[in-house]
Design a protein around this nucleic acid. Structure first.
Lengths: 197, 197
DNA sequence: ATAGCCATGTAACCAGTTACATGATTGA
DNA sequence: TCAATCATGTAACTGGTTACATGGCTAT
């Protein structure tokens, strides 16, 4: 489990309310770790009873009161211990790949449409990332240095979306032409890598 | 949920016992849909009570008896209906990215070691995929045509591992040199794409 | 001997999703 | 007036992981 740790990471960067954290999981870190507000509130309760976080109630006029959480030193210890532990290879569960695997049962027209929609969705995501990258590069050197870790995760996202889009386009075209790939993927990638030098 | 559908897909290709399916989830389809034997047995029980699959007990000498499951026509209908339904954008939960995001709290030496290990793990996976691809290309044209959908999923796996490895190598090097990326990722990818023509 | 394969399962727990619930303020 | 934002939660359910349990056969 890592929701626990993801929350500790966020609170270490900056204290905040459950609502706050839920917002942050909806963008930025949300691109590689998803959580809903229900999960966040539950987890905060647990973390709080384990004294890894603590909170203060902020009474607000005009807005509902809120509990502002911050990480405790015990929490920071847990976080650092977690960072030291090697993680297991992530396992992928991709519905789209299961569908492609079973595509002989599907209606080709529908499948083509679905791939098309998927390509659009991922292109949109990529455009979002591209804009964030543009912003990053327009910041001054000090800010860029401070933000380098989040930026590196963004680079991962860009590569990921790009690759995924390339693959989907390839599949869409092959299915449309009822064709097979001509060359092994490994060969194509090796050639592209060489071309860089 | 898709374990249900993944099982139906597998049984549609070929009937088999729970043990059998669990093996198949450990390789091939397991590369993009993971399931343990406990999950498989539970799910088969549900599918069976919903009459989407049926089984026959095969008594074996020298081996434990087994239940050989096959998909029913109701199951095939459910499967086809599912194939028609558009799927939502997959959400990613990547522990490694959370760690990188929080890397300012980590010991650089440990982080470097962990990245190194991860690179090795993924290179191993990639080598596995490369071997499978070699096998695919050494088959005759008819076999290649029949296996094209599984092969397309393999291509996705190859691209995925390759990209992931490239990113990790980049991060490892940047951290080792305490450097920042010089050029936007979008620019680098666009240039590489152009070079193909 | 010992490990690994074949074969099936239960049970407890942990994590994640969906639905329900409330209620004030602000802006279109 | 209607939707969105701020703010917090409960409850039911579904899905996934880990541990436990059994037991014979085969190959080293």
């Amino acid at each position: 489990m890592s929701l626990k740790h993801a929350i500790l990471v966020l609170l270490d960067k900056k204290p905040g309310s459950g609502y706050d954290l839920a917002q942050r999981f909806g963008g930025g870190i949300g691109n590689f770790w998803h959580a809903t507000h229900q999960q966040v509130y539950q987890e905060l309760k647990k973390l709080s009873s384990d004294q890894l976080v603590e909170f203060e109630v902020h009474t607000q006029a005009e807005r509902p009161d809120k509990k502002v959480y911050r990480i405790t030193s015990a929490g920071r210890t847990v976080l650092k211990t977690w960072l030291k532990q090697p993680i297991k290879l992530a396992r992928i569960n991709s519905t789209l790949l299961v569908k492609i695997y079973a595509a002989h049962l599907a209606d080709p027209v529908e499948l083509d449409k679905e791939l098309g929609q998927h390509i659009v969705d991922h292109q949109q995501k990529l455009a979002e990332y591209a804009e964030l990258e543009r912003l990053y590069f327009s910041a001054d050197a000090a800010t860029r240095r401070k933000q380098r870790m989040p930026y590196l995760t963004l680079r991962s996202g860009i590569r990921y979306e790009w690759t995924w889009i390339e693959w989907m386009k390839e599949v869409k075209q092959l299915l449309a032409n009822d064709a097979l790939p001509e060359k092994p993927m490994m060969e194509l990638l090796a050639k592209a890598a060489k071309a860089k030098h």
